[in-house]
């Protein structure tokens, strides 16, 4: 996973609440067996007008937001389906950071698995940035994970909270599975104890009598 330390980037505004992962990437793009190449499906239905042509008012179709690396949006971003294709598509489009007033749990978690920093700011801070972004061509923000700050072009600095463990993993680009496997001995100890306490949880589903095979 790519590490995230600090970045300054062009901001794309998505001024909507409750953006669900079905909108971020519709179902027809979930048939892939790869993590890459999902940019084509990002906000697919919202990019088009009723007649199928590109909607010139949608930010992804506007030249001034090409090359954006920070997505700015509102409450409850990423609700609904657990599809990790949503952060994959955002990443494929070039987004490394999503700033919102709140996120849905699964999407928030999925971002960290892919080197994307999800930043939660207060609703009034997001609103102010949204207004400035919509009014200012080339609006850029600086996001500093180490110091947990977002800084506007005017120098206004907002602080954000982040879980220390997640921060560390993202900051250093650590392999989450590798980290867990360092605790292999603890897992084995747990399993040994648990096997005595609750042996019915350790029947092998592959060979269980009357079971699957």
């Amino acid at each position: 996973m790519q590490a995230f330390t600090a970045m300054t980037g062009l901001v794309a505004p998505l001024d909507r609440v409750n953006v669900d992962t079905d909108q971020i990437i519709p179902k027809q793009f979930l048939k892939t067996i790869k993590r890459t190449g999902l940019r084509e499906g990002l906000f697919y239905d919202w990019r088009k007008q009723k007649d199928g042509s590109q909607d010139p008012t949608f930010f992804l179709n506007q030249p001034q937001f090409q090359g954006a690396t920070i997505l700015l949006t509102r409450d409850n971003f990423g609700c609904g389906s657990s599809r990790e294709h949503a952060p994959w598509a955002l990443l494929d489009q070039g987004f490394r950071c999503v700033i919102a007033s709140s996120f849905a749990d699964i999407f928030y978690n999925n971002c960290f698995q892919n080197g994307i920093l999800p930043v939660v700011l207060k609703a009034d801070e997001v609103l102010a940035m949204m207004n400035d972004c919509l009014a200012t061509p080339g609006y850029r923000l600086t996001v500093d994970l180490g110091n947990q700050t977002v800084t506007t072009p005017d120098g206004v600095r907002s602080c954000f909270e982040i879980d220390p463990f997640r921060k560390d993993c993202l900051f250093r680009g650590l392999d989450a599975i590798g980290l867990t496997l360092q605790h292999e001995a603890s897992i084995t100890t747990y399993e040994t104890r648990r096997r005595t306490e609750a042996p019915w949880l350790f029947t092998d589903l592959r060979y269980d009598q009357g079971g699957a095979r």
Binding site: E84, N109, Q113
Partner: peptide, 10 residues
């Protein structure tokens, strides 16, 4: 609870 694909692998 539901998880993403990276956690499926995990």
């Amino acid at each position: 609870f539901g998880i993403g694909t990276s956690e499926v692998e995990h």
